[in-house]
């Protein structure tokens, strides 16, 4: 199996961190960006929207959408399961990914887009900081448990979806002075619990490296 994409993408990185939580990073190959670059013919063949990530299976068919790929990898690769057994806990874990994708990133993307690609959307940025992201975090916090992990005391797909967002939250803090943890105690408590783990540190390092690589490429 080959996973295409780049770690600065939270949709890609959630698949990697999930694999690392399963001690199974080597179950998959990581060619990086699609052959020929983004939106090449090969890219569109693998992913009809020309997005990343996508997972090429051994029969040459492809899976798309980070959350779908992560859940698939959780099922197909050995190691501890990231899917809680209890149906409500399972729903909570998948809600975390859903809220990150549907309510946080449409807003966070304005901030990250500015930092990474230099996009300018002052109104969107302001709305993200004042309303979009705080509202989304409010919904998110309902489904984060007492810890140490999102659900109980083991890693789940909820942690895997939320941790890569924290890298982007840090970008927003550095560039805009927007500290999402200041007003969101439940999120902050969870982050306090997990941030020093090797899993999280490795994820942040991958994302930082990928971010710097992209910055250098943009500068060229």
């Amino acid at each position: 199996m080959k996973l295409y994409g780049s770690s600065v993408s939270p949709f890609y990185e959630r698949c990697l961190i999930a694999l690392e939580m399963k001690n199974a990073l080597d179950a998959v190959q990581y060619p990086g960006f699609p052959p020929g670059g983004m939106k090449s013919d090969a890219h569109f063949k693998g992913h009809p929207y020309g997005k990343i990530p996508y997972l090429e299976l051994d029969d040459d068919t492809c899976l798309i959408e980070g959350q779908v790929i992560m859940e698939y990898l959780d099922g197909v690769v050995g190691g501890p399961t990231l899917t809680p057994a209890d149906p409500y806990d399972r729903a909570r874990a998948s809600l975390i990914g859903r809220i990150v994708d549907t309510y946080i990133f449409p807003h966070q993307g304005k901030l990250s887009g500015n930092v990474i690609f230099g996009y300018q959307d002052p109104e969107g940025e302001q709305n993200a900081i004042e309303k979009g992201i705080p509202d989304a975090i409010k919904a998110l916090e309902r489904y984060i448990g007492d810890g140490p992990n999102v659900i109980g005391d083991s890693w789940s797909t909820g942690d895997a979806a939320l941790i890569p967002y924290m890298f982007h939250a840090q970008l927003a803090k550095d560039a805009f002075g927007f500290d999402v943890l200041a007003d969101h105690k439940v999120l902050a408590a969870w982050w306090g619990n997990v941030q020093d783990t090797a899993i999280v540190q490795n994820c942040m390092a991958r994302m930082q490296k990928s971010f710097e690589y992209l910055q250098a490429a943009m500068a060229d």
């Binding site: 729903a91 998948s94 809220i99």
Partner: peptide, 14 residues
Amino acid sequence: YLIESQVIAEYLDA
């Protein structure tokens, strides 16, 4: 409460 139709749908299915 549970929110988001897809999450609710999967929960009800389970």
